[in-house]
Design a protein around this nucleic acid. Structure first.
Lengths: 161, 161
DNA sequence: CTCAATACTTGACCATCTCAAGCACTTCGT
DNA sequence: ACGAAGTGCTTGAGATGGTCAAGTATTGAG
């Protein structure tokens, strides 16, 4: 039953033809919607908002100055002040003065912060369970393809000021 | 120079070994971050917030009652009221009373709304350009794998109340 | 030494989000 | 048929996320 959707999106009847770019964008949008829901729910069980959890997530790799966080999270610097304020009040994160530039404050994950972000990632059941259904070949393929389409950006530690 | 990151993440030296689940989650998180930044920027050029644009995006496929939107966007129903209020004020969207249940209001994309969401999707240059570098086989693989990990959820039109 | 640039903070203002409460309507049980 | 429970949407309060404009401290270039 065609059901005549307002926006065509023929969505290649059989699964064999290569998807159009629009179909791929749809898929990405859908996938990230589900991922985001999973992440948000997991963060909420630890009493954190998505932005707070995303900040902890970024800091897992390396401490970073406020400015770098703003760039990584694609938002205004003034925004980070508030987010880090709240994370610091809960001792998940610490501001450390940069030894080389007194304007800069490096944000560092505390041990409690590490535990928390690990717990959140472990609770993303929708995503984690789904990944379990992939075999090694598929995992490798997905990892590689995502790396091609969304190159990392995060080269080395940002602890560099 | 190993640089000794605080959180191990050995990140399989060579590209050949299958990535661990944690590495895949990292990749998903990174990819999601870039996609979201691209989407947010594109939405901003049309004067829309990410939530407003996401709502239009969902409605591309089919009109939907407020409740369904809340479920799809993984948020409280009361939230949708405000978002749709603002979209309606800009005539990108219309509330229509459901013919079969007088409690329900179906939200429908206007023509202007369609034009707007299409423009936003067309401006996601980071994502679209990256997809251009994939050949047909890779596109198919990515589409299939994402479909496996994040099954659609959106089966038929939600215009069903 | 002066001046432009940079890092962070603050305050104003709106959007987003949750929760609790309320109204309108539907559905179910009796 | 009737009342009670359930569902869909809205409203209002309160916290957070987000932008912008302005202000302070520091750096760095000339």
């Amino acid at each position: 039953m065609p059901a005549n959707p307002p926006h065509p999106a023929p969505a290649s009847q059989d699964g064999t033809a290569a998807p159009t770019k629009a179909e791929l964008v749809d898929r990405l949008a859908g996938a990230f919607g589900l991922y985001y829901g999973d992440f948000t729910l997991a963060a909420a069980t630890e009493g954190l908002t998505p932005s707070q959890a995303k900040t902890l997530s970024v800091l897992r790799f390396s401490p970073a100055p406020m400015r770098a966080l703003a760039t990584l999270l694609a938002c205004d610097a003034s925004n980070i002040t508030g987010i880090v304020d709240r994370l610091e009040k809960r001792e998940l994160v610490r501001r450390e003065p940069s030894p080389t530039d007194r304007r800069v404050k490096n944000v560092v994950l505390t041990v409690a912060g590490e535990v928390t972000i690990d717990a959140i990632r472990a609770r993303m059941h929708t995503t984690l369970d789904a990944l379990d259904t992939l075999d090694d070949t598929e995992r490798t393929a997905l990892h590689t393809l995502l790396g091609r389409v969304f190159p990392d950006g995060r080269g080395g530690p940002e602890y560099t000021r």
